[in-house]
Design a protein around this nucleic acid. Structure first.
Lengths: 350, 350
DNA sequence: TTGAAAGCGCTAACAG
DNA sequence: CTGTTAGCGCTTTCAA
């Protein structure tokens, strides 16, 4: 294998260029005042030796490492990825590097990660997870700032960036009301799950504001397609009339969609359907494609990283920060009029 | 915020314990010979100051950083996650930390990441992606070992750990033949996609060994449910008789499943169905649950990390290493006899 | 058993 | 303009 023996050091570069290490350092970092010719010689030597300054040695002076740790409390998955990507963007894609640590729901493991991250002198830590539940802080009096993304810290003084799930649910209901649906059912996840409760409460509340209520109490169950199908069956069997179902997740919505169709109900003509998560795989698999609430996870990650950077630079933003969700309307709530207008290119509005 | 001002240094510890830094170092690392009383004093001081040795400073001597970089060539997603987790396990969960870099399919970005990883003096690099295609090496003559996982390097001398997709396809066919299905169709992804081609070729080959052939040429299309449904329609419309469909992905299989059921075919009685990927979401959503080929991505990640560690320690394993896939049998190919026998707990066999 | 000193790779004062 | 020196936090000889 054409593998080099070792990394070149600045001493090697200086020697090759025939200058002192101090001069080499200045030349490479564009500091001090040097003859252009000298600078060039040093740079050539560096290139020739494939020199990359040792970040660790450099950090020793600056006190900063330009790295951050990201700990996922449970397993890394569908929710953590977009958060991670958003964070990566905000951290300048390589300007600062990210240590990824998968806590796997094990507090011991998590504490171990916190320790190693601290020993690596990360400039800060982002904590994320797949539930929006508040969780115990990963530590108190840590020597570096911590920001919680998606998940939030139980300590209200910690900085947490979370999706406004209640707002998202309200937008879903707004939309259903706007298209003339007033007999709405709600099928969602387990009632011991924070997201399920919050979304259900907001749904009920929003309807109450209009003097309306759900056609039946929220159906709490699981997050799966199977539960969606089962719940749809319960609804149909009860004889309750309904012209819309707002689901706590896209998976549930898909199960509902399949079950309703099998029972002869047309979507959206007979029943309009709204999901939550805006998860492409489920959205596209459903017939017709699902209208869904998007939590803007990537934006969440970006915001969390920005706040972390600010905190590192001495401007922390303690407290719980909620970011708006937005509704993505598709055919499960609207019959398209001929060809839909082409939307202009560019980043999706928030 | 109860944030500490700065990290304690070994000098602080030594001062508090009333010893020299050298002694403190020995005490904390269990080296040299010291009075037990001294060791205790130092350790107490360290605990009191919340001391965590600065890994960067330590690395300066050892020459190793106990970190590795992981670069995903395209976007990090469904395939990279298990690979990452496997790697994390093999790297001792914190013993060595992982820098995660999301290449997003941009070669410039990728090269940038390689540079920063090298400047951070990672001990090695793992490259992964979401396609099994061979790709250009991320660099030549790099000063650290590189292992490709899932994806493989175009340079046969590089170390790549890949799934034996052909073997997986053969196992699927073996199984279908074993349950008495001889009229098999194959629906898969785009023919410009390596995985689709390899799996189709192995399928045809395995059948040929038995003097059989597919009931129709492989149907190449996309990886989506939509394509699965469409292809099933083509198959049904052509009047070709078939008693099994082997699909290039679980998403396709799910589309096929829905379409066949809608057309009145029973699964598995009339048509047995096998997918590829063993992706829980798709598997569980399908009715009945899908038999599928599992590529053991986590094992792939583990193996890649182990080979990387070996290479770091001077024992590289150049070349392309294929890991076996295994078939997970579910109800889309078998009618369960009463209650299925409870399988003993423990790690799933490979 | 402990301390002093050198050095890992680099930056930053300060002289020359 | 360039070289010398000190020091970042730690480990590791080598003396004491």
């Amino acid at each position: 294998m054409g593998r080099l023996e070792r990394h070149a050091t600045i001493t090697d570069v200086a020697a090759l260029a025939g200058v002192s290490v101090g001069t080499a350092s200045k030349a490479l970092n564009g500091r001090g005042s040097l003859r252009e010719e000298t600078r060039r010689r040093v740079r050539d030597a560096a290139r020739q030796l494939n020199f990359e300054a040792n970040a660790g040695a450099r950090n020793l002076h600056s006190g900063r490492t330009y790295t951050v740790g990201m700990i996922t409390t449970d397993t890394i998955g569908r929710f953590s990825i977009p958060v991670l990507m958003g964070a990566e963007d905000a951290l300048g894609a390589g300007e600062m590097s990210i240590f990824l640590c998968d806590g796997r729901g094990d507090p011991i493991r998590e504490q171990y990660y916190v320790k190693t991250l601290l020993s690596r002198r990360v400039d800060g830590i982002i904590v994320t997870g797949r539930r929006t539940e508040a969780r115990a802080p990963i530590g108190v009096g840590l020597p570096v700032p911590v920001v919680y993304a998606f998940i939030s810290s139980a300590d209200p003084d910690d900085c947490s960036v979370v999706p406004d799930e209640a707002g998202g649910a309200r937008k879903a209901i707004d939309h259903l009301l706007a298209i003339g649906r007033g007999r709405i059912a709600h099928i969602t996840g387990p009632d011991h799950h924070n997201s399920a409760r919050v979304r259900a409460a907001a749904t009920t509340e929003r309807l109450a504001e209009e003097g309306l209520s759900l056609v039946a109490p929220p159906l709490f169950g699981g997050w799966s397609e199977a539960w969606g199908g089962q719940a749809a069956g319960i609804l149909l069997g009860s004889g309750t009339e309904f012209d819309a179902v707002f689901c706590g997740s896209d998976q549930i919505a898909r199960g509902v969609s399949d079950a309703l169709r099998a029972a002869g109900r047309r979507i959206p003509e007979d029943v309009a359907l709204v999901g939550f998560d805006n998860w492409d795989v489920m959205i596209e698999g459903a017939k017709p494609p699902l209208t869904s609430v998007d939590m803007n996870l990537q934006g969440l990650g970006r915001s969390a990283a920005e706040r972390l950077l600010a905190a590192i630079n001495g401007s922390p933003s303690p407290g719980r920060h909620a970011l708006p969700c937005h509704l993505v309307v598709r055919e499960s709530t609207t019959v398209p009029l001929r060809s839909p207008p082409a939307s202009p290119p560019g980043p999706a509005g928030q």
